[in-house]
Design a protein around this nucleic acid. Structure first.
Lengths: 218, 218
DNA sequence: AAATATTTTTACCCTTGTCTAAAAATTAAG
DNA sequence: CTTAATTTTTAGACAAGGGTAAAAATATTT
């Protein structure tokens, strides 16, 4: 139905829309897709023709509902395949992205329905990202303090409670910022301290840190 | 490494080489791939440049060892994915071809190695066709009489012992010819009769029939 | 508000893979 | 063995998708 290139553009725009709110700029798309702005302009105009996104010259683009649905479906496929690769084929979670980038374009609703069932209809992929349902809807979750999380829970950093320079510098040193994924590896009840995973790093944090970091959990 | 179109040409030529012995004609490739002879000439010349096949104008083509290896690898991937679809996702064996045509082009040796292991390193796909090993070698098997086959064995018709008009007419009526796949569903020891599957038809055959049909078994 | 910098678009070219129409080879028939 | 039929190749043309360089619009400084 849609070409590989079209699907990749829709997917990139979908992600950019969620990262920054509002219109997505030509340059942002070009950078994300490792291509040139002129190529983006071309493709965006074609996709606007097909009513997959709305586009005003020089003003950026926004996906239409149908464009959004297609993008969400590609992402659904990507994430389901990632679950398959990790759970069934024992890949490590940081090896699967490149392969899933190819698998996400396989066209067959029946295949995805059966794969989903085979995997036990997972809600999240191995990176902790939510898997859209077949209608393109993503389970949105509430934010809470990291200190309220339990062992083995995952969350995405969505903000801070305190915002002193010292605290922000600490977060910077630990490479934690908005959008960073955090997994609680262990929690000490005595003092509320935690061991957490951030990317491939694992380290200790005090309760004071955990009480000042907002995360969106699964 | 190779484009989708290139892989599909190599695969088609590989199959045609095995079906008819000797050079593969431009028209044969065009018909198999549902494209025009002029397009085939173009592509075949490109593939000859890359030493994936040998080509003499007006004389047809033959794969080189490297071309054959690539083709066999695509076929290996196709058949492994078919096993996956049938064994793990419970597709029916006649529904999987179209999907496997897409999956066969996913590039990742690691993926295929793991998929192969996950499936228990099968030797045959759900249609009974042999799966080439990772070096592109196909297990070649000896032919024998259908009457020597056991229950649940599969074979491909490769010839007849008797060739009377009546017998050939019978085979024709049953849609059995060179290359037809046959599966033994049941065998009666008392009289050597069998129930066999041919395509989606199942029927009874006498020992006399089974003793005059050569098959190549798994 | 004018000048400068940045972003976006346009106009044109390139590559891959396909097609049509016509020319050239090969094969088959009389 | 010469004509007819068939197969194959060549010579353009086209659509998708991407790139360059320059023009046009928008943003930012001063």
């Amino acid at each position: 139905m849609f070409s590989l290139a079209e699907e990749n553009y829709l997917k990139a725009i979908y992600h950019l829309e969620h990262e920054n709110q509002g219109e997505v700029s030509t340059n942002a798309i070009a950078e994300r897709m490792d291509t040139k702005p002129s190529s983006v302009t071309d493709m965006v105009q074609k996709l606007a023709e097909k009513d997959l996104l709305s586009y005003k010259k020089y003003k950026g683009t926004l996906l239409t509902p149908s464009g959004r649905k297609i993008a969400a479906n590609v992402i659904r496929k990507h994430r389901l395949w990632e679950v398959f690769l990790v759970e069934k084929l024992n890949f490590h979670w940081d090896e699967v992205h490149v392969i899933a980038e190819q698998l996400e374009h396989i066209q067959s609703d029946e295949l995805i329905a059966r794969l989903d069932k085979f995997l036990g209809s997972p809600d999240f992929d191995p990176h902790g990202d939510p898997i859209p349902d077949k209608h393109g809807n993503v389970k949105r979750t509430e934010k809470k303090l990291l200190s309220e999380c339990e062992k083995n829970q995952r969350g995405v950093c969505v903000g801070v409670k305190e915002s002193s320079g010292e605290f922000l510098q600490y977060l910077d040193k630990r490479k934690i910022s908005i959008g960073t994924k955090i997994k609680v590896l262990g929690k000490e009840f005595f003092d509320g301290s935690m061991i957490i995973q951030v990317g491939s790093d694992q380290f200790f944090i005090s309760q004071k840190i955990a009480e000042n970091l907002y995360v969106q959990t699964n």
